[in-house]
Each structure stands twice: as C-alpha cells, then as structure tokens.
C-alpha cells in the first residue's frame, strides 16, 4: 500500500498513535511523566531515534540480509540511543541522572523496533523518516499531556516554576507523582482518546 506523507503523519500522531492505540512505549510513559522537563528530553530522544533509525534502515533495506535484519535494526537503534544518551548527559546532566535508565531502554522500545520492522524496512527513506517523526511526535504529545497534568497536581510546579496556588489553596497531590498517578492519567487519556476516535471513525 502506497502512503502519502499526510497519511503517515495522521496515522502516527492520531489514528494509529503508538501509545493509546498500539499501547507501545508504556514503560517510559509511566516513568518519566512526573516532570515536564524530563518528559521533553525523553520525547526529544525518542523522536531523534525513531527518525534517524527509520531513515537509516530504509536506506539500507535493500542491502540488509533478511536473516539478520532484526540484529541490524537493533544495532542501528542502539547506536542512535547511545549518541542521544551521550548528548543528554553532556547537555543536561541532572535530567540525565533521572531519565538515564529510560533513555537506554529506548533501544528496546517497541515503538522504535515496531516502526523499523513494519514501515522502514518496506518503504522509501523520506516516507520512513516522516513515519519516524510522526510516531515520535504521537508518543510525545501523549507524554507531554500527561506530564502537564501530573507535574502541577503533584509538585505544584510547571517546568520547575512554582505555580501561584501552591501551598496557598493547593497542596501537592503526592499520588500524581507516583506510579499510580501515571496509571490513572494514562488510563483516562486512553479512554477519552479512544472514545473520541471511535466516534470520528463512525462518522
């Protein structure tokens, strides 16, 4: 099936969103969304990796021996992850301290491997790159939304800046920065998004 760039973006960001439609990349979604700054760096890392790994795998798709294609894909993804890990460690060491373990786990993130195998290994480089960006952006939008709710409710801050209501009439809702808060938020988001999506598709 031939895709247009518009279709690719629409699928990656909304119709086939990796988080709430395909339920991929949940580990990092739950883990890093208690602070928006951490989330932004994680999203940057994932977009960087999906984009470049899709592009590289698509360029090499005619040369990669079928028998070892998964090994090659993991190798390429792992290299980009190591590069982004070094860059975050150099530019934002404090954030790296917190999200470091999850950056390493991008290598095994189902979104990256899934897009490499399902799309990049069968489509042209430019389209594969768009698919990588779209999947990364789709993942990022969900994470940013969840983090934008969890951080103000849990810490009373947004991007580290204290909100005026904190300790005046709003007191930190600790559960929001703990794993259960992430489960609640992701569950609610998935519910609303799927309800909306089903209605749209029916229409």
């Amino acid at each position: 099936m031939a895709y247009t760039p518009k279709q690719v973006f629409l699928n990656g960001i909304w119709l086939d969103n990796p988080v709430f439609r395909q339920v991929l990349g949940i580990c990092s979604t739950l883990a890093v969304t208690n602070l928006l700054a951490n989330t932004l760096f994680m999203c940057f890392g994932l977009i960087f990796t999906t984009t470049l790994s899709n592009l590289t795998i698509s360029f090499l798709r005619d040369y990669i021996p079928k028998r070892i294609r998964m090994i090659v894909q993991v190798l390429i993804i792992a290299c980009y992850v190591m590069i982004i890990d070094i860059i975050i460690k150099a530019l934002a060491p404090d954030i790296h301290h917190f999200i470091g373990p999850y950056v390493g786990l991008i290598t095994t993130n189902c979104i990256v491997m899934g897009r490499a195998e399902a799309f990049a290994s069968q489509n042209k480089p430019l389209l594969s790159m768009y698919d990588g960006i779209a999947s990364g952006v789709g993942y990022s939008l969900v994470l940013i939304f969840i983090a934008s709710v969890r951080e103000p409710l849990g810490f009373g801050t947004i991007l580290g800046m204290t909100l005026p209501a904190r300790d005046v009439w709003w007191h930190a809702w600790t559960i929001m920065i703990m794993p259960p808060g992430a489960f609640f938020m992701l569950g609610l988001f998935t519910w609303f998004a799927r309800r909306w999506l089903t209605r749209e598709v029916k229409r």
């Binding site: 040369y63 990669i64 021996p65 028998r67 070892i68 090659v72 190798l75 390429i76």
Partner: peptide, 8 residues
C-alpha cells in the same frame, strides 16, 4: 553478512 556487519 560478515562484511556487511563489519562495515556497519
């Protein structure tokens, strides 16, 4: 396969 992996 060997040459490909070495180059990669």
């Amino acid at each position: 396969i060997l040459i490909f992996m070495i180059i990669l």
